[in-house]
Design a protein around this nucleic acid. Structure first.
Lengths: 345, 345
DNA sequence: GTGAAAGCGCTAACAC
DNA sequence: GTGTTAGCGCTTTCAC
C-alpha cells in the first residue's frame, strides 16, 4: 500500500495544514480538549468547517480501541417484543452517543453464537436476546462477549448483568384476575417448550395452583404464533375451561379469531387473556386483557446496564461482585376480553 | 501512546509468531487468498484456532477503507413500515456479509441529516427513509451520503437509486375496488400533509377522478395514527360517503374502532380500506381490505441497489447515467371490511 | 500550550 | 509463494 494517489476525503492533516498547526492540536480541538489556546482552537475550527472536515470514525476507533457502538442480537426482527427492545436500546444508547448494530439471527439459533461473537468484535459490547439458546451454550459464550447484557435470561454463573421480565408473576396476576372474576377452570395455552419465558410462566402457574387449591389449571402445549393460537381453539373448547390464558397476545388473537369463527362469544362465553401488551393488543375485538410488559423500558434498562459496564475499568469485570439484574414486573391491563364466566355474571 | 503494556487480545502477530510466518501470510490465509502454500496455510489455521484468533474488524476496516456495514436511517423504529424495511435490508445485507447500523431519528426530522451523515461516516453507505424531509434538503444532502439508496423518495437531481412504492396506483386500485362494489361516494381520510406518500395517494386519486366522472371523492385532512383514524369518524359519517379509504392500516383500524363504538356496521353500512397491509391488518374485525405493500421486499431491494453501488468503482458515481429505481406496486388484498353499499347488496 | 512521533491491528504493494 | 514495509486516519504520550 506504498505510494498511491490519495483517494480519501479531507483528513485531519488537511485541517492541520490549513490552520498552521500540528495534527495533535487539531485532534485536541476536535475532541474538545480544553488545553488548547482559545485563539488557536478557533483557527482550527474555522479551518475544519471551511474544509467541511469530519473526523473519520474508523481511524478514531482504532486509535481509541473503542467504536461507540453496541450490538443487539435478536432472534427475529419481525417480533414485536424484540422490536421493542431494539427501539429502547437504540434510543437510550443514542442519548449517550452510542450507535446500535443489528444482528438478526432470523430464528436460526445455531447462528446466534457466531453472530453475537461477530457483533462483539465490531462493537464495544453486546445486548443479547436469545430466548431459545441453551443454558450451557450461553454460559460458555458469555465470557467471550463481555461486556454483555442479557435480556430475559437468568444470569447464572456468567458475570453478566441482565434485565428480565417476571413472567411468572405476570401470569399469576392474570390467573388471579380470572379467578377474581369467578372462573374456577383455567387453561394455559402454552408457548414453545424451548422458550424460557414459557417455562417461567409454567412455574408461576405452579405457584398459583399451590395457593389456590380449588382452581383447575390445564395446560395445552402449543406455540407462539397467531396460527398456533388459532388452532388451539379445539383443545380449548373441549377442555371445559372458561378462563383461557394464551402464551402471548399474538396467540390470544389467533384464539380470539378462531373463537369468533365458531360463534363463541368473548368474554360472555369464554374469557381470554394475552401477554406482553404489544401495540395492537388494544385494538383487537374485544380489546385484549393482558399482562403489560414495558418492553421498551427493558431495552432502555439494558442500555443502562451496558453503560455501567462500559464505564467500568475493562478488567474490573470479575471483581465487580454481583452482576446487576433488573426485573420488570408486568402489570395487569384489563380490557374487554375477560368477564365473569357464564352464569356468574 | 508510546510504550505501554499490551492490553489487547491476541492479534495477527501472535498467530504469525506461532506459525513461524509473516504477518502478511497470516493475513492472506485469513482472507482466503489462494496464493499461500497449502501446508503453510494449514499451519496458520491451526495456530489461529489454537490461539482462538479472530481478526480485529477495526484494523481491517481502516486498512481496507471499508466497514462492511451500511446505515439505515428511519424516522421511527416503532412504525411497522420502517420495521419491515429494516428487516428486509438487514437480512439481505447479511446474506452478503454486511451488517446494519441503525439510525432512528425518533421523528425529529431536523436530526435526520446529521444522523445520516454520521451513519455514512461509520458505514460504507446509507439507506435513507426520510418521508418528511424536504426535497431541497434531500437534494443538498444526497451527494455527501453517496453511496445512498432512497426509500420512497423520488430521485430527482440526485444520482441516487431509489426503491419506491406506487402509492398512487395502490389507492386507485382501492378506489376501483370500491366502485366495482357499487360505491359512488368515496372519501379519503388523508395522511399528514408533509408525507410524500400521502401526496402520491392524492395524485392517484386525482387521476382516478379524471377517469370516473360519476364518482365523488371527498378528502378529509387527518393524520397517520390510530387516534387520528378514530377521531375522523365524525367527518366520515357526516360526509355521506359509503366507501372510505383510510391513509393506512393504522388509521383504518382507528376508524373501524370508532365506527364500532357508534354502532355503525362495517362493511354493511360502510366499507373501509387500509393501506400497507401491516402484519395485523388481517386480524382486525372485520379483517381489513387493503393495498398490500411488500415492505420487506422493499428493504431487500434497497440492499440490492446498495450492493450494486458498492460494487461500482467509487468514482463511477456520476458517470453511471440513470440511477436505478425500482417500483413496487401494491396489490389489492380484499378481506372483510369492504362490501357493496347499503341497498346495493 | 504545542508538536513529534509512536502506535492502534490490519492489508497490500513491492521486492525477493 | 513469502516477507518487508508503508500506510489506513486518528489519539496520546512524551518532550519541549
Amino acid at each position: 500500500m506504498a505510494k498511491r494517489v490519495r483517494t480519501t476525503r479531507t483528513g485531519i492533516s488537511d485541517v492541520a495544514a490549513r490552520a498552521g498547526v500540528s495534527l495533535a492540536t487539531v485532534s485536541r480541538v476536535m475532541n474538545g480538549n480544553q488545553t488548547v489556546d482559545a485563539q488557536i482552537a478557533e483557527r482550527v475550527r474555522i479551518a475544519a468547517s471551511e474544509l467541511k472536515y469530519q473526523p473519520n470514525p474508523t481511524g478514531r476507533n482504532l486509535a481509541r480501541g473503542k467504536t461507540d457502538t453496541i450490538g443487539v442480537v435478536v432472534p427475529d426482527l419481525g417480533n414485536p417484543t424484540f422490536q421493542g427492545v431494539l427501539r429502547g436500546v437504540s434510543r437510550a444508547a443514542a442519548q449517550d452517543g452510542y450507535r446500535v448494530l443489528i444482528a438478526d439471527s432470523s430464528e436460526v439459533s445455531s447462528e446466534e453464537a457466531i453472530l453475537a461473537g461477530e457483533a462483539r468484535r465490531r462493537c464495544d459490547g453486546v445486548v443479547l436476546c436469545a430466548p431459545r439458546m441453551g443454558a450451557a451454550e450461553l454460559e460458555e459464550l458469555a465470557p467471550s462477549l463481555h461486556p454483555l447484557v442479557l435480556v430475559n435470561r437468568a444470569t447464572n454463573a456468567t458475570g453478566s448483568p441482565s434485565v428480565i421480565v417476571d413472567y411468572g408473576r405476570g401470569i399469576q396476576d392474570l390467573a388471579a384476575h380470572l379467578v377474581g372474576l369467578g372462573h374456577t377452570r383455567l387453561a394455559y395455552v402454552a408457548g414453545p417448550a424451548s422458550s424460557s419465558s414459557h417455562r417461567l410462566r409454567l412455574a408461576g402457574l405452579d405457584a398459583f395452583k399451590a395457593s389456590h387449591s380449588g382452581i383447575e389449571v390445564q395446560v395445552f402445549s402449543n406455540g407462539s404464533t397467531f396460527e398456533d393460537g388459532h388452532s388451539s381453539a379445539g383443545d380449548v373448547l373441549a377442555s371445559g375451561a372458561t378462563g383461557i390464558m394464551a402464551f402471548n397476545d399474538l396467540t390470544a388473537m389467533g384464539l380470539l379469531s378462531a373463537l369468533n369463527e365458531r360463534g363463541i362469544r368473548v368474554p360472555e362465553d369464554l374469557s381470554v387473556t394475552g401477554f406482553d401488551d404489544i401495540p395492537f393488543a388494544r385494538y383487537t375485538t374485544p380489546p385484549l386483557t393482558t399482562a403489560t410488559v414495558p418492553i421498551q423500558d427493558v431495552g432502555e434498562q439494558a442500555w443502562a446496564q451496558m453503560k455501567e459496564l462500559l464505564n467500568r475499568a475493562p478488567n474490573a469485570a470479575a471483581e465487580a461482585g454481583e452482576p446487576a439484574s433488573t426485573t420488570f414486573t408486568p402489570t395487569l391491563t384489563v380490557r374487554g376480553s375477560t368477564a365473569p364466566p357464564p352464569g356468574k355474571g
